[in-house]
Design a protein around this nucleic acid. Structure first.
Lengths: 204, 204
DNA sequence: TAGATTGTTAATCGATTAACAATC
DNA sequence: TAGATTGTTAATCGATTAACAATC
């Protein structure tokens, strides 16, 4: 790979990508100004960010939507199908299992696990919920690249250990507690209460 | 208020707070090193962040957990009860309505709205789901401080306009599309697909 | 006093913005 | 050529880190 894309840019590229995906076929081309307006950014920022993507702007004209979309997707490592294990079949897990954006981006939720026997066997988006004790053996044959924790906070650490043992490459943790994993595994913690609390400061 | 807290610090303070809340009564005091370890940060960073909070460290000892917890909560403007309107009673909305962390942080989901007549009348966490057409009149008497969008992407913009009209102070948007609102309203967009896509880059 | 740990100042690093050159 | 818009270099700004002073 070439030089790494700055973190701040990596956070914004998916937002640009989403905007590009919303552009209909009547919008063959967009300018940095258009992208900026739609994503609450500045046009210079957009151009600077896009300079890290093998991209395709035409001076005086703008960017060809479809080409730029592909270039960003490639830079983010999308376009490959990723095997995802979802742990937790409660309301949040159910929401995640049915989210149409995932298959569209190449994230394939292959299995859903839960600890509660009343949920095991339930069918979620075409998948039968399995008992979490099966995760490890399932992962042997076909490893999961991403593990998603959608359990109550109390179970999160145990599940994280299990995912580490199952050799996932990355963890997305919605449980609202920080989990500890070896440094080679990327973790993103998304916590609803944290988002509210950040908002609270700016409400003051 | 005193000088504003840097954005990067505001994002981290809730994470420290969560750690402090997890400390049992057997942990009366913590060091910056402890906080750093638990939150994947550095001790210097923690101390620098805490210097923006009217705080209470004792050299050679550390921070009194309970005192620090209160100081951070105060700095973030927590400790006041905030009226929240939740729009969207699907799986995600249901998960949000039942999330125990919200009342614990002073966020009171006062009403849940949905457009789908089949969901209107359903009881969620003790609240009857109302038709979204009632939102505006409800907000007249008792304004909502925060509006949470948990609808499908297609409905998000319409709902955002409604929330602006209802004069909310801030919007938390889980719909996965960027919404446009006047600059005086703070918006946080939390998008599940975006989180996956960021993760994807670091998996490469 | 010695050890531990906070708090602050200065240096570094990374990200954003401004200015402008390049070119369709 | 003139207008529009990208792409890049340099300047600014904000955030992180290093060094160390303060003090329990």
């Amino acid at each position: 790979m070439t030089s790494p894309i700055p973190k701040a840019t990596v956070r914004r590229l998916p937002i640009y990508l989403r905007f590009l995906e919303e552009c209909g076929p009547n919008t063959p081309t967009v300018g940095s100004e258009d992208i900026a307006r739609a994503t609450h950014g500045s046009a210079v920022q957009v151009r600077k960010d896009l300079s890290h993507v093998r991209c395709s702007g035409v001076r005086g004209v703008g960017y060809e939507v479809d080409e730029l979309r592909q270039a960003i997707a490639k830079a983010l490592g999308l376009g490959v199908t990723r095997r995802v294990a979802l742990i937790g079949a409660g309301n949040l897990g159910t929401a995640l299992a049915g989210y149409p954006g995932f298959p569209a981006s190449g994230f394939r939720i292959c299995s859903v696990y839960d600890k509660n026997p009343r949920r095991v066997g339930m069918v979620l988006n075409g998948m039968a919920v399995r008992h979490v004790s099966r995760l490890l053996q399932d992962a042997v044959g076909e490893p999961y690249e991403i593990g998603v924790i959608a359990t109550p906070a109390a179970a999160a650490r145990e599940v994280a250990d299990l995912l580490v043992e199952a050799r996932v490459g990355a963890i997305l943790n919605f449980a609202g507690v920080t989990v500890q994993v070896p440094p080679e595994i990327t973790v993103r913690n998304v916590d609803l209460a944290t988002e509210f609390r950040i908002l609270s400061y700016y409400l003051t």
